[in-house]
Write a protein that binds this DNA or RNA. Structure first.
Lengths: 261, 261
DNA sequence: CGGAACGTTGAGGAGAATCAATTATAGTGG
DNA sequence: CCACTATAATTGATTCTCCTCAACGTTCCG
């Protein structure tokens, strides 16, 4: 509560509990995470490609892209992080980043040192499990994005991305699937879908014609969600939002204590 | 040793210990994993898209592709698994698959029930951590593949894939980076790179001209590895093979016991 | 108010897909 | 062992999606 990041941490806890079971002790431990607030200006890379990091970045507000780069500098965003997401959670167990993080708009971060997260993960196996599962969710998104950029047409690609973000923004109470603030440029959309900015523009126009989807003033409006989902061949299951999985480590831990004593 | 899968488990342990520190107790626990051997014929899907699973598939021999599908059935492979890889480790904490697994050649699996893996992960925090980190490594590959299929030309894409597999096969003692058995068809290569089989064929021809790379009798030969790596813009850091990371959970666990007693 | 970033549109070109046919290879059963 | 078949590799011709280059309008922000 004292923390200025309380709201973002609350979102993060909700993100975790949507996929994992946490005890109230565990939730409290997460709420107690110490870190510091940092403002990032738009289009600043705040984690450089290939640099080791010693803290994680919880997105409080704004939009963050994880990206890789071609030799000539052309970028491909591999995942987008919105408020409540821990953008580089994976760095807790693998501190050398082979990727970069960039603010796609003015962004507020809560930087949490690895040692903080490691501490609560070690004290609470349930948290370690939830973090592990959270990394799986990220990986599942990467994997779906491979399919998206590898095999789908431009209209389908963009529609799919918009559908994913619609669901995710809805989940963190920043709008709903028919209308949400999405502070990204067409260049950014192109970097996320493997298209050029020009072709992204044409594709958006085509989606506007086909389905009435508009992206105006950084706000996406989707009049007919089912239609867009159909155009985007979107099925939300890869987001792993279908309820918390049964705990495995903590449960088994109890079992193992019974065996030992 | 009694297990027919001993060699594959040994490879898996090596995969884990190349990124994580395990005690000999922990290694023993992994070696003791009970499962059953299963033969899969070439081109058989053995994990269906969207099906829940209750076991993991350790590849003993052969080649496995994780794939997603377009509505019309066109496939995109999002990761390849070779001997010693646990193809669907993520299902341990997230049992509903949003993807499928397919044998790209005749393949031998060691099917290990989730409960087995959960048991040893709960008893040995170091194993849980190593498995978590292993999932990060998979995610890192997915992420790199997004860049590969999203932003690179066909020649670069194929070269990058060949480089990745060269390093990985070398790691599991199935050849070296200049020559390794890679039992995949050109159609499979296309599904992995987001290209058609026809264009994959032309691309391979071009790589053969440029750099002498040949793919004959399911064997890849790379006369000039550095040149291919350059064509493929390949940097191996995303494979997370640069030595085991310091343990965090087990180490902190000791710390926390000290605090408590 | 002025400059920079962003969005939009047009024209032309390149790379990959598609369609189609032929050759090679591997696996199968008689 | 060999014909038979299916799968895989190869090549050519054509089409189409998306990129590139370029210009101009618009919005944002200091």
């Amino acid at each position: 509560m004292g923390s200025p990041a309380a709201a973002a941490i609350e979102l993060f806890v909700r993100r975790l509990t949507s996929r994992s079971v946490l005890t109230s002790d565990e939730e409290d431990a997460i709420h107690g995470l110490k870190g510091e607030v940092q403002q990032i200006v738009s289009h600043r890379d705040f984690v450089q490609l290939g640099q080791p990091v010693d803290h994680c970045c919880l997105v409080m507000d704004g939009l963050v892209g994880r990206f890789g780069q071609r030799r000539d500098g052309a970028r491909q965003i591999t995942c987008l992080y919105i408020p409540g997401d821990l953008a580089d959670l994976s760095s807790v167990v693998s501190p050398k980043s082979a990727w970069g993080l960039s603010a796609l708009t003015g962004t507020t971060l809560y930087r949490v040192p690895h040692v903080e997260i490691r501490r609560i993960a070690a004290l609470h196996p349930g948290i370690a499990e939830a973090l592990w599962r959270d990394c799986i969710a990220d990986g599942s998104i990467f994997s779906e994005w491979v399919v998206n950029v590898g095999r789908r047409s431009s209209a389908t690609r963009v529609a799919h991305l918009l559908c994913e973000m619609a669901i995710r923004y809805e989940r963190c109470d920043r709008g709903n699937r028919n209308s949400f603030a999405f502070p990204i440029t067409q260049l950014g959309l192109g970097d996320a879908t493997g298209l050029t900015a020009v072709h992204t523009n044409r594709t958006l126009k085509s989606l506007r014609m086909q389905s009435g989807v508009t992206v105006r003033d950084k706000t996406v409006t989707i009049p007919d969600w089912n239609q867009l989902a159909s155009i985007g061949e979107f099925k939300a299951d890869y987001l792993l939002f279908d309820g918390p999985a049964p705990p495995i480590i903590r449960m088994a831990k109890i079992l193992s204590s019974e065996l030992h004593y």
